[in-house]
Structure formats: structure tokens, C-alpha cells
Amino acid sequence: MIRDVIKYSISFILLVLAQGLIFNNIEFGGYVVPFLYVVFILSLPFETPNWMVLVLGFVLGIAIDAFTSTLGMHTSATVFVAFCRYYLLKMVSPRGGYEFNTKPNVQDMGLTWYLFYATVLILLHHLFLFYVESFKLTQFFYTLGRVLASAFFTLILVMLVQLFNYKSSTKS
């Protein structure tokens, strides 16, 4: 339990720094921006209390917003994702619930499950984020294009992170 807290704290800091210092600067023509930091919310253990997921989402969003000085933008998106995560987990839970001490990752839940889970949440996050950012529906399809492209890019990064985790966990 304590180990998990430390582990997640470190990954929180690393993800925020990576997002703030690296990924925010990756812009393919100002069109595609990957938002890897959502992986933090995706990877929280199943047993995390729902309110804690929301609060952690809120804190994560504030931290990201601090870098881009867009206070509230990422925060609302992460809170939204934390909210959706609860219902999505309920929807895709295996019969008899999640096994104890399993985490939402490829290793424990399988590739198909994780791909579906990650894709849905990343898409929701990006949809929310980009539409809050543009804050109007006049450029609906332009924004939608940004959402899809960025979500795809984020998904690749998330899967890469999973790949690293997968290796490290099989070794140990």
C-alpha cells in the first residue's frame, strides 16, 4: 500500500514533468499534441476510492495547467475522465468483479481489454479538452480532427509506457 503510494507519487511527478517539459512542446504544426499524463488516471488501481480518483484527477489537472497557464482547462478534462473511468470500469468489469491486487494494465487485464479501456478514456479526455480549449462549435470538424489525431498519438505513447511496465514486471 505504502509502496503503491510512493510509486504513484513518483509517476505523478514524472508524468507532469514529462508533459510540461517535453510533450507540450511536441506540436505537429500546432495540430497534434499528445497528452500522456492521462495515463496516470488510467493506471490507478481498481481499489482506489472513487472520490480519490476525482481528487487526484483534479490535482493532476491543476499541475498540468500550471505549466501551460491555462488554469482550469486540463483540470476540467481530468476530472471528467476520472468521473468517466468509474462508469467505464463498471461497464467492462469481468464477471465477479476485479480480482484483488490486479491493476488496469495490459499485463493483468489483457491487451484487448486495455486497448478498449485506454482508447475510450483517451478519446473522452481529448474530446473534452479540445472542445473546452476551442470553446465553440464553429470549428467543429477541425477540432474533431485534432482530437482524433492527438488521441491516436497519445494512445501510442500510452501503449509504449505499458510496454516498459510489462518488461519490468516480467523481469521481477
Binding site: W51, L54, V55, G57, F58, G61, D65, S69, T70, L71, G72, M73, T75, S76, V79, F80, A82, F83, V132
Partner: peptide, 18 residues
């Protein structure tokens, strides 16, 4: 309620700071 509350705060921040 917590979700609505946090989202509300985010939007207040959003509107006030951007």
C-alpha cells in the same frame, strides 16, 4: 456531487483565468 463540484471549480478557474 464531488464530480460536479470539482468540475464546477475547474470551470470557474477556467473562466476566471483564461
Amino acid at each position: 456531487f464531488l464530480f460536479v463540484f470539482l468540475l464546477f471549480i475547474s470551470f470557474v478557474l477556467l473562466v476566471q483565468n483564461n
